[in-house]
Write a protein that binds this DNA or RNA. Structure first.
Length: 719
DNA sequence: CCCCTACTGATCCAC
DNA sequence: TCAGTAGGGG
């Protein structure tokens, strides 16, 4: 059999990985080293050469997007539908397991997945019921406590004995939350993993069933696995199934959500005889950019160690621009993008990256002012939008009447006169009888215990949902959705919201109908409705209204991971912003910040531009942050400080007060003037700010770059 | 039920 | 600074 198409075009390391024996395998894949390619070719190899059946291969990723991409590329390469193959996220696969083995998992057959919003509502409700003061214990904090325990694989019963009032309160709430979920058959994200891990542990026969059925595991982005995911893989693999993990410890940037970089370091100890392959040849960036990345990341300790290289050329130096303030920074960035597109390049080839979302506003304003189309990546998940969640809640109710979270969400949306009082009444009833809200409502209506307007509207609501269920028989999922949106008047309700919001929400709802069209009845036995509901919880839905106009991409450094752009602009390279204030003290977290910077730098293919602002308004105050240490960690010969053009002009927005003038504060100096400093030599005045003893002046020294100097100390001589 | 005001708090975010 | 929200009054 001709296998050349599997190995052709791969470099030696890639080939070694793809054609490795069917053993444990750790692939350390540097940025831009062809990681996905290796994964896809490896699967092809396993099927074609090792003759593994699709159904015996499981490939795990972190996002649905990655899973979809991998599946698509396999199908394309082998020209067969990757049917029966286990492609998915940890959570997606765990969900599938629980759905199959719901009895072993002690779950109702149609258990529901809680997303974080549902989860928060439940936490709030429990706190109300237990009379826990929510100003002292913020529900969000409780929620994140619960989730991080689950990430660590700990149930309430597993928590070590605790003494502080904080720990006791959290443990008590965790326990109550667990009970509530179990009682109403609801499963949150962490629970999917926890529960499927447990059914394997408690049920050796079931575990060996899977161990016999599967003959190879592959895991992408292994550096992002958390404790429970790692445990899950270890149990499943046992010493039965060989596993290949692919990752890059230098790109581990999700420690704050439970990822354990140690997992990738631990792999060789826990999985016997693992072969290690390093993919270090980079096909993405110029060697200038790679050198910068390499020296930067070398400042971290405890690395598994990799050195990226390329046989490409040096390319352009890294541009560094010291802005007066964040406005000036934004203008400069917009100028660069505009110059880029005037040079005939696509705007979509350029990305503006920043550490925190708050930075995007100023950038957007500049882009708007210069009429440069842009697109913000990330932001709210499609399925997290209010209107979408409402619509999905209707679908959930149609599918499963006892879904309390869904019931609560839409019983009064659009407003139909079922007030807080009625609902809390029903809640109390439901709790007394240990039934669902739906059940309680139906019973109380039958007994005539609900009076007045609430009675009529609730009856109508119940009948409406029942009606949808009946109609569902004859309708496709999209028709059903359309019907629900119309008859419940949800579409009308959202469309009528004031401002542009109404229009946007209407469009999103229409987009939802569109999305349901992928779920028309097939030969599958599972209902499209339940399929769709599960995916609404498990899939972010990359359905941001797609702009077809050529636009610059704006995103945080985190969301940029995995992407690449010919031109990358990194904004806000200042201490306190990046590395972020909250991560500066702790060396462990500081290293994660550095990895994040490494991720940013390695996104750039041809040109990297970094900017920082000497002064920045932050939380209403003007801050002066020094340039980021990460910039100082890049060799200076790779960096070129951008000089201003000879026409020096101050951004209008910069003046602190209108009465400000050169003559008053710095009579001897004016913009563009040549001055001498005893240490830095001759330079040109670029800017100034402040008054009296605080007045500062910015001077560009050819030998030493841009400096802000305090006038009263600097002892500058005009020339 | 809706709107206005007062207050809070503020990285990164997939499932 | 400002965005998001909780609570009171119309």
């Amino acid at each position: 059999m001709d296998v050349s198409y599997i190995l052709d075009g791969l470099n030696d390391a890639q080939r070694e990985a793809v054609a490795a024996p069917k053993n444990n395998l750790l692939i350390l894949a540097g940025a831009g080293s062809g990681k996905t390619r290796v994964l896809v070719h490896r699967i092809a190899w396993l099927m074609e050469i090792e003759h593994l059946s699709p159904a015996s291969i499981m490939a795990v990723t972190f996002t649905n997007k990655a899973a979809k991409e991998m599946r698509g590329r396999i199908e394309q390469m082998l020209d067969i539908p990757a049917r029966g193959m286990w492609f998915g996220t940890f959570h997606g696969i765990a969900h599938r397991l629980l759905r199959t083995h719901w009895r072993d998992a002690q779950l109702p057959e149609n258990f529901q997945i809680l997303d974080s919003d549902d989860q928060l509502r439940i936490v709030k409700r429990i706190m109300r019921e237990l009379n826990v003061d929510d100003s002292r214990w913020p529900p969000k904090q409780v929620q994140s406590f619960i989730n991080s325990q689950k990430d660590e694989g700990l149930r309430a019963a597993h928590l070590p004995p605790v003494h502080s009032i904080y720990d006791k309160t959290m443990a008590m709430l965790y326990q109550a939350y667990e009970q509530q979920c179990q009682q109403s058959g609801m499963v949150d994200f962490g629970e999917l993993l926890l529960r499927s891990h447990e059914i394997w542990l408690n049920n050796p026969a079931l575990l060996s069933h899977y161990q016999e059925r599967l003959s190879y595991l592959l895991v992408d982005e292994f550096q992002d696995t958390n404790t429970i995911q790692y445990a899950w893989l270890r149990v499943l693999a046992g010493d039965k199934i060989p596993i290949m993990v692919v990752g890059d410890d230098d790109q581990s940037i999700y420690g704050w959500r439970g990822a354990k970089i140690e997992n990738i370091q631990q792999f060789q100890n826990d999985f016997q005889h693992a072969q290690v392959v390093r993919l270090e040849q980079n096909y993405r960036s110029t060697s200038t950019i790679l050198s910068a990345a390499n020296t930067l990341i070398a400042n971290n300790g405890n690395r598994l160690g990799k050195q990226l290289w390329t046989d490409g050329n040096d390319g352009e130096p890294i541009d560094l621009y010291a802005a007066f303030n964040e406005q000036d920074e934004a203008n400069y960035i917009a100028d660069r993008v505009s110059a880029w597109s005037q040079n005939g390049r696509m705007r979509s080839e350029a990305a503006i990256l920043y550490r925190s979302n708050a930075q995007s506003r100023v950038l957007e304003e500049s882009l708007i002012r210069q009429a440069i189309p842009y697109r913000i990546f990330g932001g709210l998940r499609f399925y997290d939008r209010q209107e979408i969640r409402n619509a999905v809640a209707y679908l959930r109710l149609v599918y499963y009447r006892h879904d309390d979270a869904a019931f609560e969400r839409v019983v009064n949306v659009p407003p139909r006169g079922v007030g807080n009082k009625s609902v809390s009444d029903l809640r109390a009833r439901a709790r007394e009888q240990s039934t669902s809200l739906w059940q309680a409502t139906v019973e109380r209506l039958q007994l005539g215990l609900i009076k007045g307007k609430a009675a009529t509207t609730l009856t109508h609501f119940i009948d409406m949902i029942d009606g949808f269920s009946i109609e569902q028989e004859n309708l496709s999922l999209s028709q059903l959705t359309e019907q629900i949106l119309a008859e419940s008047r949800l579409l009308e309700h959202h469309a009528g919201e004031k401002g542009e919001k109404g229009q946007a929400r209407k469009e999103n709802l229409l987009e939802l109908i569109n999305a349901t069209k992928d779920y028309e009845p097939e030969d599958d036995s599972v209902s499209p409705l339940s399929e769709f509901i599960a995916q609404a919880a498990l899939d972010a839905g990359e359905r941001q209204a797609e702009e077809h106009e050529d636009s610059v991409q704006l995103m945080t450094l985190h969301t940029a991971k995995g992407l690449e752009f010919p031109l990358v602009l990194m904004a806000g390279m200042e201490e306190g912003l990046f590395p972020h204030q909250m991560s500066m003290e702790d060396p462990v977290r500081l290293e994660e910040e550095r990895r994040l910077c490494y991720v940013g730098v390695t996104r750039a293919m041809e040109q990297l531009v970094m900017t920082y602002a000497e002064a920045r308004r932050l939380y209403g105050q003007e801050k002066f942050h020094p340039v980021s240490r990460f910039i100082r960690e890049i060799p200076t010969d790779l960096i070129q400080e951008v000089r201003l053009k000879n026409t020096i002009s101050r951004p209008v927005s910069f003046s602190h007060s209108s009465s400000f003038s050169i003559e008053e504060d710095a009579p001897a100096f004016h913009l563009g003037q040549l001055v001498a400093h005893k240490k830095f030599g001759e330079g040109t005045v670029l800017n100034y700010e402040g008054k009296g003893p605080h007045a500062r002046i910015q001077v560009m020294f050819p030998e030493h770059g841009n400096k802000w100097l305090v006038l009263s100390y600097a002892k500058l001589t005009p020339l």
